[in-house]
Each structure stands twice: as C-alpha cells, then as structure tokens.
Amino acid sequence: MTLSVAQHISCDEVETRANAARIFNIQRYSLNDGRGIRTVVFFKGCPHRCPWCANPESISPKIETVRRVSKCLHCSPCLRDANECPSGAFEHIGRDVTLDVLEREVMKDDVFFRSSGGGVTLSGGEVLMQAPFATLLLQRLRRYGVHTAIETAGDAPLSRLLPLAHQRDEVLFDLKIMDTEQARSVVAMNLPRVLDNFMQLVADGVNVIPRVPLIPGFTLNETNMARVLAFLLPSGIRQLHLLPFHQYGEPKYRLLGQEWGMRQVVPPTESEVAAMRQMAEREGFHVTVGG
C-alpha cells in the first residue's frame, strides 16, 4: 500500500533548486542507458502518464512511503514510520541529496567508467524537472572526464533543456506516440514542443540518440514507426534504439497499491520487433534493440 498520493506536475512548473535534488535510486553496473558500465541516477518526478511506465515510483515528485508486506512483523500498535520500523517493512521512496553528496556517490564507480568507457546517466522520472541541479552535476562530472548522458522525453521549455543538453556527451531522447492528439490524451505530452526541441538539439550539434518504446496498442505499429522515421530522416541521424515493452514494472505497482493497467498485455514477439527493425533498416538506420 502507499501512504501518499502522486501529484501531477508539468515541466513548466519544475523545481528550480540547484543545490539539492530528489532522487529515488542509484543503479550501479548498468550495461544499458549508454555505452560501457554506467551508474544511473534516477530523478523523482515526471510530467507524463505513460500507461506502460516501468517505474511508477518515479512519477510523483513527492517522497512516498510504502509497506513491504513480506517484511512486516504486524507490530501493535504500528507506527507507520519508515525511520522507526524495526523490520524495514515501511520504507521511503525518494530522498533529497546535495550536489556534493551525489557527486561523491557516483564517483565511487570511477574505476569502472574508465575501464569500460562508461559513465553516468541521469534518468527518471524526467530529469528536466530538476534541470538546474542536473546541469551543475554534469558540469562537475565533466571536469573529471566522466562520460555523461541524459535520458529524456524532451517535453520542457527549450530554455531548460539546452543548458543541460550542452553539458552531456549524449542525449537518449525518447520518441513515443507520434500523433499529437493521442500523445496529449494518453501520455499528457506536448508533442509539437518535443519535436521542435529534438530538432533544436540536432541543429546545435548535440549528440542525440532517438529511442522508440515498442508498446502494443500504442507505438508498436507501422503507422507510428513510419511517422518516427519520416521525422528523423531530415535530421541526418541514422541511429535508432528500439525498446520493447516488458512486464518488469508490475511488482512496483503492487507495492504502491496501484493497478497495473498493462498487466494483460503480452510483450512484443521477436517477429513483431523484427518488423519494426526492418522498417528502420530499409531507410538506412543502424538499429539497436535495447538501450
């Protein structure tokens, strides 16, 4: 069960603190989310409502408290306090960190970055919701020569996106539903702004790698893929990452006391993914399945 309610907030109402950020996870030894061995920092808060989201704990910008039933001792009375719970059944999702603390945390893995050509990726949620902090963090990491990347859907004012994008080595940019009205109604996304921002990054010489989640019923179809390719072709970009839908996030919804609306959805078959890949390769794209 969850003891707090997710709050909808857009990237236009983003937290502007630069000295602290709210994160919910630091994932070490990741082989996705960029090249080499990476440490991924997950920022809390997202403006979108993707039905297929695998990280539902990332959506609310608030610190949430959850109860893991398997750990519960059923104390009576229950304090419902993560700081006092003797078994750790109650725990917080999300914590506030300063620049100095987070810099020290990720730089513990510097030996792996240098031996593998990896680095640090800022993900979410949506990192643009805490762009001032993220920009300063990347500036610090670049002083160490650490390869840096951000994962984003690009749905924020350009004034927030550009300073951050100019401090990284690559931007992993998600392109989802390519119909404007459907993107707004299903995901709460401002697609025209997303596409304009993507092209501005390209025009500025930013290394942008587009990624397409392959979601049955939403993006896993020839029409949506054709729109992605038609959009990308004038940019000159010929890399494309395809991210097939999976069910790995289902336990997180149960933990949060939320319904997983995609529970009955079957992940794409190899032939369905291959069909999308072949469409892109026929147009000259180098395709990677996975991120």
Rank of each mutant, 00 (worst) to 15 (best):
R142S: 07
A134I: 04
R140L: 13
R143D: 13
A188F: 11
R160W: 09
Q200N: 07
M189P: 04
V187Q: 12
Q200E: 15
P192M: 02
M178G: 13
Q139P: 02
K176Y: 09
T152W: 06
T180A: 15
P132W: 05
G145I: 12
A203E: 13
A156K: 02
Q200L: 07
H147T: 12
V127H: 06
K176G: 08
G125K: 07
A153M: 11
P192I: 03
R193K: 03
G154T: 01
N190S: 04
S185K: 14
Q182K: 15
T148W: 08
A183G: 14
G119T: 11
Q200I: 13
Q139E: 15
S123M: 09
N190Y: 06
M199I: 04
L158D: 00
T180F: 13
M199Q: 15
L128D: 10
L128R: 08
I177V: 14
E170R: 08
E151P: 02
L201V: 03
D179F: 08
L137T: 04
A149L: 07
L172N: 10
R168Y: 05
P163K: 01
D169N: 15
Q167A: 08
V206T: 10
L136W: 01
G125N: 09
G205T: 00
L141G: 04
D204I: 00
Q139G: 14
D204Q: 12
S185V: 11
N197R: 04
P163S: 02
R184K: 13
P157F: 06
A203Q: 14
F133D: 02
L158T: 04
Q167W: 00
T180I: 15
L175K: 09
A165T: 03
Q167C: 06
Y144N: 14
L195G: 01
G205W: 02
A149M: 06
S159E: 14
S159V: 10
F198G: 00
G124I: 05
R143Q: 15
Q130W: 04
E181P: 00
L138I: 02
F173K: 12
P157T: 03
R160E: 04
L122P: 03
Q130I: 03
E170D: 08
R168T: 15
T148Q: 07
V171W: 07
Q139T: 14
N207I: 00
G124N: 04
L122E: 05
H147Y: 10
L138V: 03
I150N: 01
G118I: 05
L161T: 01
G119I: 11
V202T: 14
D196I: 04
F198W: 00
D179T: 13
G124F: 02
I150F: 06
R160G: 06
R160M: 11
L141H: 05
L201G: 09
H147N: 14
N190A: 03
G154L: 03
L128F: 11
L136F: 04
Q182V: 12
L137F: 06
